[in-house]
Computed example of a mutant assay.
Amino acid sequence: MAQTIDQGGFFGALVATWPNDPLTSAASVAGFTEKMKFLVAEYAGLTPAKLLAEQALTFEKFHGSRLLFNHINGTPQRIGTYGVTLTPETRYALGESYWKEFQEHYTKGNRSLFPNTDFTIEPTTPNGIPLWGTGDSAAGIEHAGQVVNVYLLMLRELAKVKDQFGRAQEAAQRHGRQYDDMGALTSVIVRKDQKEAEKAFYQLFEKTGVELLKHKLNVSIQRKTQWRTKPR
């Protein structure tokens, strides 16, 4: 898939390959590509900032300036497996301090600790590894304005997209920053014409079936609300 993305001339791809480690997954296939960038999902605080900086510098040493990080504040289900329990407020504070520390370590480079060995991996991205991320709530948007270089959102109605982009830009300006770019996550069905594309779209629902859709939605709601059915 990475070779297809690379040879097809695409900018890059998100790597969020859990349960496989995303950074390890990206590094394992980067050598088969030449241009594509790897947007690696990373939870703030799970990897020590200095260690992540060393990993980023090593990635660039072998593969060039093709690493990006998708900054994830952390879902309770994921970070909880590491024994990390944070409120949204403390999670945002952690994210801000974590990425600041990471960029400081990255821009210093990684110097050899062996005696009489003057060797350092120098950073190849002058302003630090770009962070891509999102924020939907008021606090999330404010946090994105503090740390994110490329702001992302889920594609919705045009009015909502314009409003959220506008609020995100205002948040960045309040912190003396501006985004390098902004983008929206969407799905695309490619067919010869619109009629065939619409047919393929509705067939997805027909093949999936109502009962499976209901089940998946219910699982998602329970996961996000931490709701559990109590035994009678």
Rank of each mutant, 00 (worst) to 15 (best):
M1L: 10
A2K: 03
D6N: 08
Q7C: 01
G12S: 02
G12I: 00
A13E: 10
L14A: 11
W18T: 10
P22T: 00
A26L: 12
A27I: 06
S28D: 06
S28G: 09
V29H: 01
T33R: 01
K35A: 04
M36R: 02
K37I: 05
A41M: 03
A41F: 10
G45L: 10
L46Y: 04
L46C: 06
T47R: 12
T47W: 08
E54K: 15
E54R: 14
Q55M: 14
E60F: 04
K61M: 14
H63Y: 10
L67M: 09
F69E: 03
N70H: 13
N70V: 08
H71R: 07
H71Q: 10
G74H: 04
G74F: 10
T75M: 13
T75N: 03
P76I: 02
I79F: 06
Y82H: 10
Y82V: 02
Y82L: 02
V84G: 00
T90M: 14
T90R: 13
T90L: 08
R91Q: 14
S97G: 03
W99F: 11
W99A: 03
K100Y: 00
F102V: 04
Y106H: 07
T107V: 11
F114E: 05
P115D: 12
N116M: 07
F119A: 09
F119M: 14
E122I: 13
E122N: 05
T125V: 14
G128C: 00
P130G: 05
P130D: 05
G133L: 03
D136C: 05
S137M: 02
A138Y: 07
A144P: 12
A144R: 09
Q146H: 11
Q146M: 07
V150D: 06
M154A: 15
R156V: 02
R156P: 03
K162R: 04
K162Q: 14
Q164A: 02
G166D: 10
G166M: 01
G166E: 11
R167C: 02
A168S: 11
E170N: 00
E170R: 08
Q173R: 07
Q173E: 15
H175M: 04
R177Y: 09
Y179W: 14
Y179N: 03
M182T: 04
S187P: 00
V188F: 13
V190E: 04
E196A: 12
E198K: 07
Y202H: 13
L204C: 09
F205C: 05
F205D: 08
E206W: 05
K207Q: 07
K207H: 11
T208N: 10
L213T: 06
K214M: 07
H215N: 12
H215Q: 15
K216Q: 12
I221Q: 15
R223V: 10
K224C: 02
K224P: 00
Q226C: 06
W227L: 14
R228G: 09
R228M: 13
T229Q: 11
K230I: 11
